[in-house]
């Protein structure tokens, strides 16, 4: 007695496992794809904070003290 073979066989072939080197490269590529956005966010936040502090001192401290010459 033979086992009937179904019309569609589930994909029994396992996906090829990438080598550790290729896996690292893929991770690096993923990270570098996101890097500019992260750098923009970090440097943008730093510069925005600096500008806010500068303007706060300018408006609330420097201008009220009045002119010198």
């Amino acid at each position: 007695m033979t086992t009937p073979v179904p019309d569609s066989v589930p994909n029994a072939v396992p996906k090829p496992v990438p080598s550790p080197e290729r896996w690292e490269e893929a991770r690096l590529a993923d990270a570098l794809r996101e890097t500019p956005r992260g750098a923009f966010a970090l440097s943008g936040a730093a510069v925005a904070l600096l500008l806010m502090c500068w303007f706060a001192i300018y408006v609330f401290v420097f201008l009220p003290r009045g002119g010198v010459g």
Binding site: F55, Y58, F62, L63, G66, G67, V68, G69
Partner: peptide, 13 residues
């Protein structure tokens, strides 16, 4: 521009 404004409008130099 802020510095220029203080210099010209408020005469802070």
């Amino acid at each position: 521009l802020a510095i220029l404004w203080a210099s010209l409008a408020h005469l802070i130099n």
